[in-house]
Design a protein around this nucleic acid. Structure first.
Lengths: 141, 141
DNA sequence: ATATGTGCAAAGGTTTTGCAGGCTG
DNA sequence: CAGCCTGCAAAACCTTTGCACATAT
């Protein structure tokens, strides 16, 4: 039996359910993304997909991840200029970011409460609330 | 009399107090940044500095803004991959980000309360807490 | 046959690097 | 004059675009 919750057939179904045409490139990218529990950069995803032989171009990795994000299959986490992570966890949650190592750690939404949110500008609605707690190794004085 | 709180002499003093050698390029960039109350991109800052004739190169704008950020003279606000704003307000505060127009609006720290912060990983300390509330024009159904 | 969708090479934009020239002690 | 600092041209990097090819009606 297969101990992993993900296989390519399941990815295919998830894409179709989300309204994304499940082409082979998209299934490969989705598999690399979902079967990892980590926060991956576009570069890392491409390396995994193309580990054995070239399967997708970099442009397709970017375009596909953008498409997944539109369909709420993945969440973009922006931590540095030119450094986007793709987080397969799309439920509401926040992040610790290790400034030194570049690692990203989830904070469950239940662990952090935001209150007294100010009134939104007129005729606007919230798309998302991003919270990144930037931490560093405590300096040894 | 001068009605603006900023002039180049004052910028020079602020740089020196922060431990940044106040070269002419840095004073020009600092003046463009501090005398504006807006959130400017590196590109916009360069346009202001070089409005009349070339004063600094793009590389120097980037390097100088990075230097200012290290010395807490400016705060980098990252809202999109490859889109950094420089915010002369370095006190604790948060941001609304208009997804559609790219505008950024300050939220005073007093307007938003974060509680139940989870325990930090061992031997780490908070550098900064970034909160970006991404908003969009409400769709007209 | 026409229209729509897809993947990628090439282009575009942003940020970093490496080094020539200047300044300081 | 030796060593450090500064500014910038060029390089590197990340992301988007435009188009050729494929697929569906």
């Amino acid at each position: 039996m297969n101990t992993s919750p993900w296989n390519k057939q399941k990815v295919l179904e998830v894409l179709r359910d989300a309204g994304v045409n499940p082409t082979s490139q998209r299934v490969e990218i989705g598999y690399a993304l979902f079967s990892s529990c980590a926060h991956l950069s576009a570069e890392e995803i491409m390396q995994r997909v193309n580990a054995d032989y070239p399967v997708v171009s970099k442009a397709t990795v970017y375009n596909t991840l953008g498409l997944f994000a539109e369909h709420a299959l993945v969440r973009e986490v922006i931590v540095e200029p030119g450094k986007v992570f793709y987080d397969p966890n799309v439920s509401a949650h926040y992040h610790f970011y290790y400034v030194d190592s570049g690692d990203l750690i989830d904070i469950p939404a239940s662990s952090l409460e935001i209150s007294n949110l100010p009134e939104l500008p007129p005729d606007t609605e919230i798309e998302r609330v991003d919270v990144v707690i930037r931490i560093r190794r405590r300096s040894t004085h």
